[in-house]
Simulated assay, not measured.
Amino acid sequence: MKKQIIVGGTLKDAADRVADAWRRAERGEPVEAQDNVTFLSWSALASHMTEKRYELLRRLHKAPAVSIRALARDLGRDFKRVHEDVTALEAIGLVAREGGVLRADYDEIRASILLDAPAA
């Protein structure tokens, strides 16, 4: 599964993507499942995706963590900071928590930066 990050998109852009997929499905065309996260600006994405959070995502991709405490220990980081990072990444859909187990089950994150999008 892929997760796509779109920078410079709007809520209307996201709604248009859903409507387009719906119309294609109604016509019987194949529709690939997409899991998108839209940020209004590059700075909004940059405030969420730090090097430490990227490292955390890579670790969760390799192996789920049974708790934030276990993840912090595996990463050699402070529990409070890892908790903050997990909470932020969970809020934007990059970390999933199922029964307390933390996961990043997608294989790839693609970022698209729309250069003709209106400034936020």
Rank of each mutant, 00 (worst) to 15 (best):
E90Y: 11
S47Y: 12
L40R: 11
A14E: 05
V82S: 02
T38G: 08
I68A: 04
S43V: 08
G76S: 00
A46N: 06
P64M: 04
V101F: 05
K3L: 14
D116C: 08
P118G: 02
E26S: 14
V7F: 02
E29Q: 12
L45V: 02
R27C: 09
S43E: 15
S41R: 01
I92V: 15
A44P: 01
R97Y: 05
Y54F: 12
R17E: 09
H61Q: 12
R81Q: 08
R59G: 02
F79S: 06
L56V: 02
R77E: 14
K2W: 09
E32C: 04
E98K: 08
D74I: 05
G100N: 00
E29I: 05
R69H: 08
L45W: 10
F39V: 00
R103E: 13
L115H: 13
A14Q: 04
F79H: 11
D20I: 14
K12M: 10
K62C: 10
T10M: 01
L102W: 02
A63K: 12
I109E: 05
M1A: 05
Q4N: 09
G76Q: 00
L40I: 09
A70P: 06
D105H: 07
G100R: 03
K3V: 13
L60V: 04
K12Q: 15
A65D: 06
A117Q: 04
I68Q: 11
R69N: 08
Q34H: 08
L75T: 03
V37T: 12
L40V: 10
A46C: 08
G93H: 05
R81I: 06
L114F: 13
A15G: 07
H61T: 09
D13M: 15
I109G: 05
R17L: 15
K52A: 15
T87A: 14
K12T: 11
G8W: 00
D20H: 15
A88H: 04
A120M: 08
A120Y: 07
G99I: 00
A91S: 12
Q34M: 07
F79Y: 14
R73E: 15
Y106G: 01
D13F: 15
K52N: 13
G9D: 06
K62R: 15
L40T: 11
Y106R: 02
R24H: 11
P64V: 01
R53Q: 03
E51Y: 07
D16H: 14
L89D: 03
V95Q: 06
R73V: 14
D105E: 14
A88N: 09
A119M: 10
